[in-house]
């Protein structure tokens, strides 16, 4: 099993983006998916960083793919999606409509925001040219095992959500703007103020969610720290690590140490917890009973 770094969900300054991808060049990860996933309005502010980041990562021997947006509605966004095909990189589709822009026969990857819940869907996507599939984070271990087995049979690597705040929902409405009494069209890019999303608590002060523009995330950082062996046995090929604003080099290194057997689940969790925004971990989607739950290593 190896490591894949997914696209950054957040709106970071261009120089932070540059620093992040030059750091990843030296990290023990096999591949990197980059590009704007959440909001097309942010892209002009940092897209100048993409060619340099791609070049740096390729030079370091990483495989690189470019993501589509998670929700494509505007004409401008459809055009943007069509242009991704010209970059010469594999496209990771995170909205099914991006598939319409992938020329027939051109291989593509499927990201965690496409609903791949069963064998029929996985088979259809593979027949259509999918060469890598990261499953939705919501899946149970049983479902992951069935799909990983099919992936093996079909020769298509299967990835699962390994680390990061969970992408729980996407909307046409911007919640960051709403919190600032603004509309989406006049947001003034307030999502840039929260490098890992803006925390949302319940009225009883329970850590719950985080908003990131039009996206809603879990406040907990999901981690497969204790599930690595189970996932490996199930035939999962790669763990997806989702970018966060601090400590990410250490996080990548720690997962690599865990995969190679140098540290155990509990040691990895001890490294991750203080680095996670909000210092909370979860693994309840695959392990049950609910996404927010943390097994703490208990079966």
């Amino acid at each position: 099993m190896d490591l894949t770094v997914g696209p950054n969900f957040f709106f970071w300054p261009a120089e932070a983006v540059r620093g992040f991808y030059s750091m990843l060049a030296d990290a023990p990860v096999s591949r990197v998916v980059l590009g704007e996933l959440v909001c097309s309005k942010r892209l002009p502010f940092w897209q100048g960083e993409i060619p340099g980041a791609v070049e740096t990562l390729l030079a370091a021997g990483k495989t690189v793919a470019i993501t589509s947006l998670a929700l494509i509605t505007l004409k401008r966004e459809r055009k943007l999606t069509a242009e991704l095909a010209d970059l010469g990189l594999p496209i990771e589709i995170n909205d099914l409509s991006a598939l319409a822009q992938v020329p027939d026969g051109q291989p593509f990857w499927v990201g965690p925001l496409v609903n791949v819940y069963n064998e029929g869907t996985l088979r259809w996507l593979i027949r259509r040219g999918a060469r890598r599939v990261c499953l939705p984070p919501e899946l149970t271990l049983d479902a992951i095992a069935v799909l990983a087995r099919l992936g093996r049979e079909e020769g298509v690597p299967i990835e699962v959500w390994g680390h990061g705040r969970l992408p729980l929902a996407i909307s046409g409405r911007c919640y960051h703007a709403r919190l600032h009494d603004r509309t989406k069209d006049s947001c003034q890019f307030v999502c840039g103020e929260d490098a890992d999303g803006r925390d949302v608590e319940t009225l009883d002060g329970q850590a719950f969610l985080a908003v990131n523009g039009v996206q809603t995330l879990s406040q907990s950082t999901a981690s497969m720290a204790y599930k690595i062996e189970t996932l490996a046995e199930a035939g999962v090929d790669s763990l997806r690590l989702s970018p966060q604003s601090s400590g990410f080099a250490r996080i990548c290194a720690a997962y690599a140490e865990r995969q190679s057997g140098k540290i155990d689940g509990s040691a990895l969790a001890d490294i991750l917890r203080p680095l996670a925004p909000g210092q909370r971990l979860s693994d309840g989607f695959p392990a049950g009973p609910a996404g927010a739950h943390w097994s703490g290593g208990r079966a």
Partner: peptide, 17 residues
């Protein structure tokens, strides 16, 4: 209010989506 079919808020809290 979320894109339908693309929301796991309910299963994050309850395990049922």
């Amino acid at each position: 209010v979320m894109a339908e079919g693309r929301c796991s808020l309910s299963s994050y809290a309850t395990g049922q989506s």
